[in-house]
């Protein structure tokens, strides 16, 4: 998303309106329902929306210059959190984690869905920052 920047380098917002709060709330709600109720598309989509919106709102309110670093940080958190959930069922050995990919255990799948949301967010962050660097959006 394009963001206008003020002369001081702070990203400027618009008086009295912001598109992000609605999506931060929706992302959290959908992600939470998806993870707890084991509906994986909702889990991944909701968490990606949440991460993207948090990055967006941080940028808009001037806490970050660009959203990509925040998005990448959040994606890292999701990957880690998801792996911790998987590890609770498999242990930390790589081979058991790999074999768990074929698992039908819903806790393992929940963990992978959180990790998946992290991977998608990471990819979005990577893509976003590369587009920014080529000057398509600043």
């Amino acid at each position: 998303m394009s963001q206008r920047e003020s002369e001081t380098g702070e990203t400027a917002g618009t008086g009295k309106l912001s598109s992000w709060p609605l999506f931060v709330a929706l992302g959290l709600a959908v992600g939470e329902v998806g993870v707890v109720m084991a509906v994986y598309p909702l889990a991944i989509g909701g968490l990606v929306l949440f991460a993207g919106s948090v990055a967006g709102i941080l940028t808009e309110s001037g806490y970050a210059e660009r959203p990509w670093r925040a998005l990448t940080a959040l994606s890292g958190l999701f990957v880690l959190l998801g792996l911790v959930v998987v590890w609770t069922q498999t242990g930390t050995e790589l081979s058991t984690v790999q074999s768990a990919l074929a698992s039908t255990d819903t806790v393992v799948l929940r963990g992978f869905s959180i990790t998946g949301a992290g991977v998608v967010s990471f990819a979005a962050g990577l893509a976003g920052s590369s587009i920014t660097e080529t000057g398509r959006a600043a």
Partner: peptide, 12 residues
């Protein structure tokens, strides 16, 4: 919309 809406410093 922002492109023509009045702007303000975000963190203030």
């Amino acid at each position: 919309l922002r492109a023509y809406a009045p702007l303000t410093s975000g963190d203030a």
